[in-house]
Design a protein around this nucleic acid. Structure first.
Length: 508
RNA sequence: CGGGCUGUGGCUCAGCUUGGUAGAGCGCCUGGUUCGGGACCAGGAGGCCGUGGGUUCAAAUCCCACCAGCCCGACCA
């Protein structure tokens, strides 16, 4: 039995069992829980609030770059879906298919599907084809271009191994779909969005990422080029945090998106698609969480400040609560990162530290205690989630209201610096095959400890090497950094020439 | 979809080998003592033991079938 000082809010600790720790944190923080529907989850208000904040920020950024939101159908006629060969092949195994339009009571009294559809409908695993059908109608002339549309939607991919937020059968995301007049324009769009994603996760989620291009084997089915941002979470595995695809004319051909160009000739449009999903919520948990639960970057916290009334004596109770409400009102009049500060007074009738620990587990950036002793001095006790649980700073109420945005900002910065340091410490140049295998092989194969990280190594560009490494170590190329990022060398597996190092890691 | 395991109050599980009226811890409710660190004491509610069939005087327990979930192998944001 651990003593009180060493007891953590979450069992097991990260270093004991990271996947289990993650599940416990998601549950303890009331972010989400498994539903009765296999592979699907219920996102609870605290988790959904985080997602809504991400949405709000991304929406601002999409708008600022000329994109507009729209909405397309959940169902895709099978014939549409089948138009792009690689695309179908890539997604076929994980499609949910609607085949009937009615339920009837059969002889046993059970409900049975009846009235088969003339054409089955695929529940969208992604929307390139159904959106392409609309775009084909909308585009006739180069004057109709570009089309820059985003949709917020749910999609379904029939995955075998669900994990809350990280991989579920149904998930929430945004998918942008654009059409351009020229290849160069479409490629620029793909890069623009990648950079936008990088900025978003850095500035709002406090997540440092590497950017780059996917190798052929990891590319989106049907894409010419897939770019991604790759983050390292605390078990040193990589997680893809966003993708942006240059689709060439593949989907235009499939959907018939054609226009008359400036020379009066018919030409297929150049398209892109890009997305991030609610997986980012899970990424934030794995990125910043500690053994006491979630640690939220202030910019996406549904509540910035939890105000906790301390009411030991009945006679001061009313005054303490009034003071808390007053503080909350004053804080809400202050803006942080373009929104009013969200301050909640937790007046639930719960004992002592219980409330405090609930907010710790939820990862609220700041906790403020107000008790009878503070009343006299007009002060508050402030605790930061990025510091030790028991660390408290006393300051006057006025000073706290004034400094709140600055303190939140400092937490945001702190989380980013911490994450970047962790990533850099666990990113290594690997210059020989032996070094590579050592880096990615657990010391204790019975119970693999957290090991490895990002390995930067030269590669000859072949699929065979990739397959071999994946087979041996479950390590894959996360991305190939931009050309400017490195110098040529020799493949550490074959000795053949390599234009630059690529990033290897175990991945989610 | 192939191989191994498990289904018992909201959660984690014991009970099953050797059939005989359903248990614990946590959580929940009530009352009291507490409250500036996840409290304590007392009382209480809550279960067709996954579903269907069989064996038996008697099934959570034995047998058969089905269903669901978990773990391991091929995929993904």
């Amino acid at each position: 039995m651990p003593n009180a000082a060493s007891k953590t809010a979450i069992t097991p600790r990260r270093d004991e069992d990271f996947p289990e720790w993650y599940q416990q944190v998601v549950r303890a923080a009331e972010l989400a829980e498994p539903s009765d529907v296999r592979g699907c989850m219920v996102i609870r208000p605290w988790g959904y609030g985080i997602w809504e904040n991400m949405q709000r920020q991304l929406d601002v950024m999409f708008r600022a770059t000329g994109h507009r939101n729209a909405y397309f159908p959940l169902f895709i006629p099978l014939s549409y879906f089948a138009k792009e060969a690689e695309h179908v092949e890539g997604f076929a195994k994980e499609c949910a298919v609607v085949t009937h339009s009615r339920l009837e009571v059969d002889v046993d009294g059970k409900m049975k599907p009846a009235s088969a559809l003339s054409e089955p409908l695929v529940v969208r695993p992604t929307s390139e084809t159904i959106i392409g059908a609309s775009y084909a109608k909308w585009v006739q002339s180069y004057r109709d271009l570009p089309i820059l549309i985003n949709q917020w939607a749910n999609v379904v991919r029939w995955e075998m191994r669900p994990r809350l937020f990280l991989r579920t059968t149904e998930f929430l995301w945004q998918e942008g779909h654009t059409v351009h007049e020229t290849e160069a324009e479409a490629r620029a769009e793909t890069k623009l969005i990648l950079d936008l994603y990088e900025r978003f996760v850095r500035d709002h989620l406090a997540i440092p990422v590497f950017i780059g291009e996917k190798s052929e084997s990891e590319r989106f089915p049907g894409a010419v080029q897939t770019l991604s941002i790759e983050a390292m979470v605390q078990d040193r595995k990589a997680i893809q945090a966003g993708t942006s695809h240059f689709l060439g004319q593949n989907f235009s051909r499939a959907s018939g998106i054609q226009f008359q160009n400036r020379e009066g000739k018919e030409e297929f449009g150049w398209t892109t698609s890009w997305g991030v999903s609610a997986r980012l919520v899970g990424t934030v948990v794995m990125m910043h969480g500690d053994d006491d639960g979630v640690v939220l970057p202030p910019r996406i916290a549904p509540t910035h400040i939890a105000i906790l009334p301390i009411t030991p004596k009945e006679e001061t109770r009313a005054t303490v609560l009034e003071t808390c409400d007053k503080l909350a009102r004053e804080l809400r009049a202050v803006r942080y990162a373009d929104v009013p500060i969200e301050a909640d007074v937790d007046r639930r009738d719960l004992g002592g530290g219980t409330k405090n620990w609930e907010w710790i587990k939820k990862g609220v950036p700041l906790r403020v205690e107000i008790g009878p002793r503070d009343l006299e001095k007009n002060s508050v006790e402030v605790s930061r989630r990025d510091q030790a649980v028991k660390a408290k700073e006393s300051m006057s109420m006025r000073e706290f209201v004034r400094r709140a945005p600055e303190i939140l900002d400092s937490i945001q910065q702190n989380l980013y610096e911490h994450a970047r340091k962790f990533r850099d410490e666990n990113t290594r140049m690997l210059d020989s095959k032996k070094e590579f295998y050592d880096f990615f092989t657990p010391k204790n194969s019975e119970k693999p400890e957290i090991h490895g990280g990002f390995g930067l190594a030269h590669w000859n560009g072949s699929r065979e090497v990739e397959d071999q490494i994946k087979n041996d170590l479950k390590v894959t190329i996360r991305c190939i950094p931009p050309a400017a990022a490195g110098e040529p060398g020799r493949c550490i597996f074959t000795g053949e020439p390599s234009p630059r190092r690529v990033i290897w890691a175990k991945a989610y």
